[in-house]
Lab assay of single mutants.
Amino acid sequence: MGKSNSKLKPEVVEELTRKTYFTEKEVQQWYKGFIKDCPSGQLDAAGFQKIYKQFFPFGDPTKFATFVFNVFDENKDGRIEFSEFIQALSVTSRGTLDEKLRWAFKLYDLDNDGYITRNEMLDIVDAIYQMVGNTVELPEEENTPEKRVDRIFAMMDKNADGKLTLQEFQEGSKADPSIVQALSLYDGLV
């Protein structure tokens, strides 16, 4: 993909415009910024974590950033290329609610087996709590990752089998306004 070129080839721009919710001009602008920050044309896990640390200076986002990195890194080569970056950004910032929920499901399904187990969710929720640090005051019933996961599973795990399917996750998330709101945070920002 033209590693350190400051412009993408027209056919690449066209393809990314088809695969995302961005215009050709927006794709070019994002590429310019991506190459400025990642001259090699790729972003590794350490660089990704560094970006998260800028956004969450009062907590430790390392663990959460690693989980997000793994979802962005579609081809699992340990690096995020621009096409992976822009497609994930498109879903998280401008995707439909169902697209965002499928993306979030992939984030929580750490072993990619098609289910979110209690332990997988606990890993992610714990990482989120570490990331936000003491900057967020949580209600008593959610002031630990374990309590939050218990509440989520009580609401979403309809067949009580200890794991969530994509359908259970989507339906449960849509029924909880706070989850829908959290997924909409990026709307309109890009």
Results as ranks from 00 to 15, higher is better:
G2K: 05
G2T: 05
G2N: 02
K7I: 04
P10A: 04
E11S: 15
V12G: 15
V13I: 11
T20W: 00
T20H: 14
K25A: 12
K25C: 08
E26L: 14
Q29D: 14
Q29E: 10
Q29N: 12
W30A: 00
Y31P: 10
G33R: 03
F34L: 12
I35T: 12
I35A: 07
I35C: 13
I35Q: 00
D37N: 08
S40G: 14
Q42D: 02
Q42V: 07
L43Q: 09
D44A: 07
D44S: 03
A46G: 00
A46F: 01
G47E: 07
G47S: 13
F48C: 13
F48G: 13
K50Y: 14
I51S: 08
Y52S: 08
Y52M: 08
Y52Q: 06
Q54R: 04
Q54F: 09
P57F: 02
P57A: 06
F58S: 01
F58D: 11
G59R: 11
D60M: 00
D60V: 06
T62S: 09
K63I: 14
F64P: 09
A65R: 06
F67Y: 13
F69A: 04
D77C: 13
E81R: 04
F82D: 00
S83P: 11
S83I: 07
E84G: 09
Q87G: 13
Q87H: 10
A88L: 06
S90C: 14
S90G: 15
R94G: 10
T96I: 08
L97F: 08
L97Q: 10
D98L: 07
D98A: 07
K100F: 15
L101D: 15
W103H: 02
A104C: 02
F105V: 10
F105R: 04
K106W: 05
L107H: 02
Y108H: 14
Y108E: 12
Y108M: 11
N112W: 00
D113P: 02
D113I: 02
Y115E: 06
I116W: 00
T117P: 02
R118W: 12
N119R: 12
N119C: 15
E120C: 00
M121S: 01
V125R: 05
V125Q: 06
I128Y: 15
Y129H: 08
M131G: 15
G133L: 04
G133Q: 14
G133E: 09
L138D: 04
P139A: 06
P139Y: 02
E141Q: 08
N143M: 13
E146G: 15
R148E: 13
R148T: 00
V149T: 01
D150K: 04
A154D: 13
M155V: 07
M156T: 10
K158T: 04
K158C: 11
N159G: 06
N159M: 09
L166S: 08
F169S: 05
D176R: 04
D176H: 09
I179Y: 14
Q181S: 05
A182F: 07
L185A: 01
L185P: 11
